[in-house]
């Protein structure tokens, strides 16, 4: 049993080097000049495990090209390990009908430990007024 102790110590030393546990340090302006337009959001969590791994920091919205909505959701990896997820934005019109379009596809995203990252989309039609962001764990 005693002979396993050095191995365990070595494993503990090597673990942070494997790339699975890379946290992100950041630096930014203390008083941000950006004045984003936040969107109050409703969250439905069906995967509690994922809900405890990935957090939603903020949801912002702006208009581009005059009348097209652009939304940006800032996600945070709540753990120290790298986390692979897939996300997809979906748009609906004023009548609640799904708009569809080229932007509605599952996209992969890898977040380093404790990393905060923004994902965004632009509605390809002015009819799109509301959106849903779906997040699932990557393979």
């Amino acid at each position: 049993m005693k002979s396993l102790a050095p191995l365990a110590a070595l494993a503990a030393l090597l673990l942070p080097l494997t790339g699975c546990q890379t946290n992100v340090n950041t630096v930014s302006r203390a008083e941000p000049l950006a004045r984003p337009t936040p969107v109050s959001d409703k969250r439905i969590v069906t995967d509690r495990t994922l809900g405890e791994l990935i957090g939603v920091v903020s949801v912002n919205e702006t208009l581009v090209s005059g009348n097209l909505r652009k939304v940006q959701v800032t996600l945070e990896n709540l753990r120290d390990n790298n986390r692979e997820i897939r996300y997809r934005f979906e748009w609906v019109d004023r009548d609640g009908m799904a708009v569809g379009g080229v932007s509605e596809l599952w996209l992969p995203l890898v977040l380093a430990g404790r990393e905060t990252r923004s994902v965004s989309t632009v509605a390809t039609t002015p009819r799109a007024v509301d959106f849903t962001l779906k997040i699932v764990e990557g393979k």
Partner: peptide, 15 residues
């Protein structure tokens, strides 16, 4: 799909 989505978003957002 990913390339097209990124291109469209960029072009529309550019104004």
């Amino acid at each position: 799909n990913r390339a097209a989505d990124a291109m469209v978003a960029s072009m529309l957002a550019s104004g």
